[in-house]
Amino acid sequence: MIVVTAPTSQIGSQVVQNLLRAQAPVRVVARDPQRLSPQVREHAEVVTGSHRDPAVVAEALTGADAVFWLVPADPSAPSADDAYSGFARAGIEAFTAQKVGRVVGVSALGRGTAVQESAGYVSATLRMDDAIAATGVPYRALTMPSFMDNTLRQIVPITTQGVFSGPIRPDLPLPLVATRDIAEVAGRLLTDASWTGSEERPVLGPEDLTFEQMAATVADVLGRSVRYQQIPVQAHRDNLLARGSSPAMAQAAADMGRAKNEGLDLGVTRTPEFSTPTTFRQWCQEVLKAAV
């Protein structure tokens, strides 16, 4: 039995679909089962509730051969560590108590870089990885850069103003990855019972791009003028506060942006093993253009 947490999330929903296509036995943990597709409700076992809840986790992980672990975003959390390790506490205890076979988790690049301890969300994520690995459960932390799919959040300014924005330097080449490729890697690991131990597994798209290059690609694919605008890190923090983030989480996001500008995502060398196939141009043609 393969248990998938956050099955309606951007990555989790694709993991579920991949596993069902492979005819793997799937159990999902969903706070609102009505948000699941009819296909998932028909072909997967459903445990209702949050995977922060010890009782829900105990039920969901009974007899689990593998678990896909994804902590949902919580911009209102009192701290980044509460949002990650605090949320994961029940799961971490259950991995051992339920004798789970293996765990695949969503994590981030940055371990071993000079800014690892001051990277906000990422620092908290890496501390959660350490806590999971300390249980002794076989664990693969999928360490990723920013997602191509994050561009979808800015469809409105792209289409109405010809601009998308963020705190990252416009001229800094960085890796990025499509969520569908993350889901593909996760699915292969979840269905492969041969691996043991605890490791990070980088998941990088096939190229590094600057945000200026990304804007040029978006413009070319959509056939309209599009530019990237850098926002000062503290202005980014203030924007998140205005949208309801807690002060701690807004600061954690700002710290992550600052750390990315200082090389957080550049500590891993791309190899064929760590590279995924979807280019940003392909993603724009197949996903962004359709969404627009």
Rank of each mutant, 00 (worst) to 15 (best):
A83V: 11
K99H: 06
K99A: 10
D74P: 05
S118H: 02
N150Y: 12
Y139H: 12
A134Q: 09
V71E: 08
S146H: 10
A141I: 00
L142Q: 07
A131T: 14
G63A: 02
P75G: 02
D129G: 13
W69L: 13
G86P: 03
S165G: 08
S76T: 15
Y84T: 03
P75A: 04
Y139F: 10
A73W: 15
P72H: 14
A80G: 14
K99D: 12
Q154C: 02
P167K: 00
I92V: 15
L142I: 07
R102F: 12
S85F: 10
A90T: 11
T151P: 04
D82L: 10
Y84M: 14
T113G: 11
T160L: 07
R111F: 02
V137R: 03
N150E: 10
A80Q: 10
G112F: 05
L152P: 09
A80N: 04
G110M: 02
L152K: 14
R140G: 03
E117Q: 15
Q116I: 06
T151C: 01
F95N: 07
M128Q: 11
V104H: 02
T143Y: 04
G112D: 05
D65Y: 04
L126G: 09
I155G: 02
E93F: 01
I132C: 01
V71N: 09
G86Y: 15
A119E: 08
V103M: 04
S85W: 07
S146A: 11
G162H: 10
T62P: 00
L70F: 05
S85C: 04
R140Y: 08
Q116A: 15
V163F: 08
A88M: 12
G105S: 14
N150D: 15
Q161E: 15
V104A: 09
T62S: 12
K99V: 06
L142Y: 06
D65E: 11
M128C: 08
P72R: 14
G120N: 13
S85G: 13
A119H: 07
F164P: 01
T135R: 00
I158F: 02
L109S: 14
I155S: 08
D129H: 07
P167C: 05
P138E: 08
D74N: 13
Y121P: 10
E93W: 01
R102A: 14
R89Y: 00
V106N: 08
S79F: 01
A77I: 14
G120C: 03
A60E: 03
A73E: 15
S146F: 03
M144S: 02
Q161P: 00
G162P: 06
M148H: 15
A133L: 01
T135L: 12
G63W: 11
Q161Y: 04
E93S: 11
A88F: 08
A134E: 06
A97G: 07
M148I: 04
M148P: 00
A77M: 13
T113Q: 13
E117T: 14
A88S: 13
D130S: 13
V122W: 06
A141D: 08
L61S: 03
K99P: 00
V156M: 15
S79M: 07
A94G: 11
L61Y: 15
L61K: 04
G105P: 00
F164E: 09
G86R: 04
G162A: 08
Y121V: 12
F164M: 09
A60L: 05
P72V: 11
T125S: 11
